[in-house]
Simulated scan of single mutants.
Amino acid sequence: MSFRPGSRIFNSFRPMFRQPLLRRRVGNSAAPEQTGFAKFWNSKVGPKTVHFWAPIMKWSIVLAGAADLARPAEQLSLNTNFALMCTGAIWTRWCFVIRPQNLFLATVNFFLFLVGATQVTRITLWQRSVKNVETQAQTEGKVLEGELKDVAKKAEKAVKS
């Protein structure tokens, strides 16, 4: 027996590492076909995996974006919503490339893209309208300024005569 404690611990657990867990398992064709909930529960993207729970958590981002539809467009961030839109588009495509294909994750990312695109559209339309109002106010201001100068000249002429 060795005096090194690490060696003793490893040697005492060595039989556990020789279990069939590390060997490739071959499917048993005699096993009955699963149906219904058992098939969903044991699937590659079922509730036992991160492929199920990640989209569940990501729905909170989609719901938060949808709740922002009630906010005025001037309070929204264009950069943030553009990032959400791009993230949704990129990851929707990626969900069809990766294995196992995860349609649930693709769905949540597609809705993230839709919410982001809707918000970006709202923000850009609001910014255009503000810009149009400002340019319209400037042109009206110039017209009013010209009219005021004409009225001032007429008033001066009336006072002088």
Results as ranks from 00 to 15, higher is better:
G146I: 06
A66E: 06
C86L: 14
K131C: 07
E140D: 12
A155R: 13
K39M: 05
T124I: 15
L69Q: 08
T92H: 02
G36S: 11
E140C: 01
D68M: 07
R128C: 10
V120T: 09
V133D: 09
E74L: 05
F37G: 02
S7P: 01
T107D: 10
L148Y: 03
W91G: 00
N102S: 04
S2C: 03
F104G: 12
A89L: 13
I123N: 08
E134A: 07
A83T: 00
V97E: 11
M1I: 13
A117E: 13
V115C: 15
T124A: 07
F3W: 06
E156F: 04
I98S: 03
C95K: 00
G6D: 15
E156H: 03
Q136E: 12
L125N: 09
L144E: 10
H51T: 01
N132K: 02
K153Y: 06
T35R: 02
G116H: 14
C86G: 05
V143F: 10
S43G: 09
F113E: 02
V50D: 12
T135Y: 07
S161G: 13
L112C: 13
R93H: 09
P32E: 06
R24V: 00
D150F: 03
R4M: 06
S2N: 03
M1V: 09
S12Y: 14
F37I: 05
K131V: 14
S43E: 01
P100K: 06
R71V: 09
V108Q: 06
P15Y: 01
L84R: 15
M57V: 05
N28E: 12
Q127L: 12
T92S: 04
L125H: 09
R128A: 10
K157D: 15
R8H: 01
F10W: 01
L22Q: 05
C86E: 07
K149V: 00
F104C: 03
A30C: 01
R14M: 02
F104E: 08
M16K: 06
P55D: 10
G116E: 14
A31L: 13
V120F: 01
P20Q: 08
V143A: 13
W41R: 03
A158H: 08
A155E: 08
L148K: 04
L103G: 12
R25S: 08
A30P: 01
S29E: 15
M57C: 07
F3Y: 02
V62F: 04
W59F: 05
Q34L: 13
M85W: 03
E145D: 12
S2M: 04
L21S: 08
E147Y: 01
Q34M: 11
N42S: 10
V130T: 09
L105A: 14
L103T: 04
S12N: 11
I123D: 04
Q119R: 14
I61W: 04
N11P: 00
P32S: 06
C95A: 14
L78F: 07
V108T: 14
A66C: 01
Q75D: 05
L63I: 11
N79R: 06
P47A: 03
K142H: 11
K131E: 11
G116N: 10
T121R: 13
P15Q: 02
K142I: 10
N109H: 10
A89M: 10
M16E: 06
F3D: 09
N81S: 06
K157L: 15
V120R: 00
G6N: 14
T107L: 14
E134H: 07
